[in-house]
Simulated assay, not measured.
Amino acid sequence: MNRISITLLAIALPAGLAAPAFAQEGRTLGTVVNGNTTIEFKAADSSDIDLQKLQTWSTFASAHPDVAHELAYKPSLINSDSYTSRKHPELGEFFSAHPDIREAMAENPGNYVAIPPRPGE
């Protein structure tokens, strides 16, 4: 996947997932049964998402698609000082300027980072 596609996904996916949830809050969107495990997918409760924080993160993510991609697959890196200060100092600077976003991302990473679909999905 090229950088432009990842950038567009980093911006559009969180916003695209949040927008329909306003109209469908609490509605079951689908169910998956795997053996004795049933997973029910419900529309997200978007009332607690700060859209300003989301926009600020989306702007950073579009400028740093590799970082956004890595955090999508391993959101625990949000709390790794070695990752944010040594490997990606620009992310460390972003989190220093926006500690509230780091805290919100650590608490609910799915509101900010999403795994992009793989080709053919």
Rank of each mutant, 00 (worst) to 15 (best):
M1W: 05
I4P: 00
S5F: 08
I6P: 00
T7R: 15
L9H: 12
A12N: 12
P14A: 10
G16C: 11
L17G: 13
A18E: 09
A18S: 06
A19Y: 11
A21Q: 03
F22C: 01
Q24I: 06
G26R: 07
R27A: 13
T28N: 08
L29R: 10
T31G: 00
T38I: 13
F41E: 02
A44Q: 12
D45N: 15
S46D: 04
S47L: 10
S47E: 10
D48R: 13
L51A: 12
Q52N: 14
Q55K: 02
T56E: 01
S62H: 01
A63F: 03
H64W: 05
P65V: 07
P65G: 09
A68S: 14
A68V: 06
H69W: 15
E70P: 02
E70K: 13
L71T: 00
L71P: 06
Y73A: 13
K74Y: 05
K74M: 05
S76D: 15
L77Q: 06
N79K: 14
S82E: 14
T84V: 05
S85C: 01
S85I: 10
S85H: 06
R86H: 09
R86F: 08
R86S: 13
H88I: 01
P89S: 09
P89D: 05
E90V: 12
E90P: 03
E90T: 07
G92D: 07
F94W: 04
F94P: 00
F95G: 08
F95L: 06
S96G: 11
A97E: 08
H98E: 07
H98D: 04
P99I: 08
R102M: 01
R102C: 01
R102Y: 03
M105P: 00
A106H: 03
N108Y: 08
N111I: 00
Y112F: 15
V113N: 03
V113K: 00
I115W: 02
I115D: 09
I115N: 03
P117M: 09
P117H: 05
E121W: 10
